[in-house]
Design a protein around this nucleic acid. Structure first.
Length: 388
RNA sequence: GGGUAGAUUCCGGAGCGGUCAAACGGGGCAGACUGUAAAUCUGCUGGCUACGCCUUCGAAGGUUCGAAUCCUUCUCUGCCCA
């Protein structure tokens, strides 16, 4: 086992904020496995690279012999974390939450060691509470404390609504820390406030307060806003290898540097050609969530993009009922589970996005001759191979 | 409880009886350029086998030849006062 000082060095690497190093060191010096808490709300079923930053850190705790405590916020999901929101979020139904929670866990274990993870649903204690319990819980914090929070302050300043249930969120999340007796809580930097509330509540309850560990927020593919599903700027960890590779190749050079540090813990070599560095980054990420072979294949496909014959593409059988270009292209998008309206397709055609073996097809009404093996390019990311 | 302002297409936000599928900005998409990146420039951005037709402007009714625009009721929200 590593010494407390060594562990501290590893654990704080890549973090945005730790409150505080010395407290963490003291806890480590006790020589007992720490309980490292991570709370997730199953509001959206798919994990993406943004979530992976925190999960990777939690795995480091596991590797060092500590106990990961993964809290599935089946209860909190019903409230909806107001973090970063300018408006209240719509609540999910019980069924949606449970279904999301199941996929969530399954995906989280692509990163975490299942054997060393304790999973708890926070509904376990919150659903037991009576209204008077809730009142007592609320009595442990002040309104002023809650209003310290950026999100709330801003919304109030902008005359936007803040619903009372939303200010319960930090309290509820904080109480989780009391329930699981967390020694450390992990989260993105946007979770700082919530995690601090947990610390306060633990103190109030006479417990040793948890260490706050915040990890940087990963920007989405646009490089500006945080990675999130609703902004559609994410890379899902279950995405097909080719897709994952392509998405990473589409990021800017600046963003590549950031991804490299946050996702694979490596610095980009400034002497190397950025294109090569980006390919290597993409390959490493694909390898992590798929396999080395898949990464090699994805890289090969990418390099062979000019040579159409050598690339593996999804196959597409042209429809028999429609011979016009709009119909064909629309069916192709459907086959990729990415349906588009006829008007959208028409626009793509007129704007020159559609190519057959490299030739632009610009007339929506034309009825092109298709033969097996030809490549139909639909847009920047999507191409299909004609099959019989 | 009283007063007052408002709800418009993905978002913000014009429009205040016909010329409105609805200005403008953001976002998104496509093309050119490039390192099949970014930046930049240009175009597109409700639906429809489409020079036309259909459905939209919180909801439901009504006035009118004609309504996003006027009236009524309802639902929701902000602000001020209590």
């Amino acid at each position: 086992m590593k010494s407390p000082a060594e562990q501290l060095e590893i654990l704080t690497r890549g973090t945005a904020k730790v409150l505080s190093d010395t407290e963490l060191l003291k806890k480590l010096e006790k020589g007992k496995p720490l309980r490292a808490k991570l709370g997730v709300d199953p509001t959206s079923p798919d994990l993406h690279l943004g979530h992976s930053v925190v999960l990777e850190k939690l795995r480091q705790f596991q590797e060092l012999g500590h106990q990961a405590v993964l809290i599935i916020g089946d209860f909190t999901a019903q409230i909806g974390d107001p973090t970063g929101r300018s408006t209240a979020r719509p609540p999910l139904t019980r069924e949606e939450i449970l279904a999301n929670a199941a996929t969530y866990q399954e995906q989280a274990f692509r990163i975490l060691d299942q054997e060393k993870t304790e999973i708890v649903y926070n509904g376990k204690w919150f659903n037991e509470m009576t209204f008077s319990d809730v009142i007592q819980l609320n009595a442990k914090v002040t309104m002023q404390q809650m209003l310290q929070r950026e999100d709330f302050k801003n919304r109030i300043a902008k005359d936007q609504e803040v619903r009372l249930h939303e200010i319960q969120y930090p309290i509820v999340q904080g109480w989780d820390s009391v329930e699981v007796r967390a020694d450390v809580e992990l989260g993105g930097t946007d979770q700082l406030f919530n995690i601090l509330v947990g610390r306060d509540l633990q103190k109030t309850m006479g417990m040793e307060p948890q260490v706050v560990m915040c990890l940087p927020i990963l920007e989405g593919l646009d490089g500006v806003q945080k990675m999130s599903k609703s902004l559609n700027n994410y890379v899902g960890i279950t995405e097909p290898a080719g897709e994952m590779f392509g998405k990473i190749m589409s990021i800017s050079d600046e963003l590549m540097a950031r991804y490299a540090i946050l996702l694979i813990g490596e610095e980009v070599d400034p002497a190397a050609h950025p294109l090569e560095e980006k390919k290597s980054l993409a390959a490493k990420i694909v390898a992590r969530y798929h396999s080395e072979e898949a990464a090699e294949q994805a890289l090969a496909n990418w390099n062979n993009r000019g040579k159409l014959d050598e690339v593996e593409l999804p196959e597409f059988v042209p429809p028999t009922d429609r011979k016009d270009l709009i119909g064909i292209v629309q069916a192709a998008f459907d086959s990729l589970a990415e349906p588009k309206s006829g008007s959208d397709v028409r626009r793509l055609i007129q704007q020159g996005s559609i190519q057959l073996d490299g030739e632009k097809l610009a007339d929506p009404k034309s009825e092109p001759e298709l033969s097996v093996g030809q490549v139909l390019k639909l847009n920047k990311k999507r191409s299909v191979r004609i099959a019989g």
